[in-house]
Computed example of a mutant assay.
Amino acid sequence: MGALLDQKYEKLFSLLDTNGDGVIAEDDFELMAGRVLAASREEDTQKGKKYAGEMMNYWRALRSSADADGDGRIDREEFRRALRQVSDTFDTLVGPLYHAGFHLADRNDDGLVGREDFVVVLAAIGVPATEAGATFDRLTEGNGQLAKDQLMTAATQYYCDEDPANTASHLLFGTL
């Protein structure tokens, strides 16, 4: 694995370790889902329930592939090793969470996400709002609306791509 993927995986680990205890566990996913739903005001909506469900599906899939010692917690090394496998099955394993997150942020269901809604969701995940805004601007190339295919391309590249030229996707969750 290259240095760029190591940096991205470390950033993702730090975001997923929502409570900051140095490991990723089910409670981290529950806490993050709660923060995102509260920030987006979607706690009791169908979109919110779908997002929370996909968050827990992602946890179960990650635990299944990463929790080598079976203790219900994923440390940094387990996470790093497993992310390569997760990346190979992105569309079925991780993709549904990103789809649900996009629909959560698509407040008016027009197939586009505006900057403010994008920033709200990423800030709830733990990305500083200024960095989330800069990410939105890079992904949309300044056109003010994010389409689902733009997000999915960036997310797939975040997990898999080591080309340093793809800065928009590498900085999906803020600076590395």
Score class of each variant (00 low, 15 high):
R73I: 09
R73F: 10
R73S: 11
I74V: 13
D75R: 07
R76Y: 13
R76F: 12
E78D: 13
E78T: 07
E78I: 06
R80V: 11
A82K: 07
L83W: 03
R84A: 11
R84Y: 05
Q85D: 10
Q85N: 11
Q85K: 11
Q85V: 12
Q85H: 10
V86E: 06
S87C: 09
S87V: 01
S87M: 04
D88K: 10
D88V: 09
D88W: 06
D88H: 06
T89P: 00
F90R: 01
D91T: 12
D91Y: 10
T92I: 12
T92F: 11
V94W: 00
G95H: 02
P96N: 05
L97V: 00
L97R: 00
Y98L: 00
H99Y: 07
A100C: 09
A100E: 10
G101A: 08
G101C: 05
F102D: 04
F102A: 03
A105F: 10
D106K: 11
D106T: 14
D106Q: 15
R107L: 14
R107Q: 15
N108Y: 09
N108S: 14
D109H: 12
D110H: 03
D110W: 03
G111I: 04
G111L: 06
G111V: 06
L112T: 15
V113A: 07
G114L: 08
G114F: 03
R115C: 08
R115V: 10
E116Q: 15
E116N: 14
D117F: 04
F118V: 07
V120L: 07
L122D: 00
A123W: 04
A123F: 04
I125M: 14
I125P: 10
G126K: 12
V127G: 01
P128Q: 09
A129K: 14
A129M: 11
E131L: 06
E131R: 10
A132W: 05
A132E: 06
A132C: 15
F136V: 04
F136I: 06
F136N: 01
D137I: 01
D137C: 04
T140F: 00
T140I: 04
T140H: 04
E141Q: 15
E141V: 03
E141T: 15
G144N: 08
A147K: 00
A147Q: 04
K148F: 05
K148H: 11
K148Y: 10
D149W: 05
Q150M: 01
Q150F: 01
Q150V: 01
L151Q: 04
L151E: 02
T153L: 03
T153K: 09
A154R: 01
A155G: 03
A155F: 00
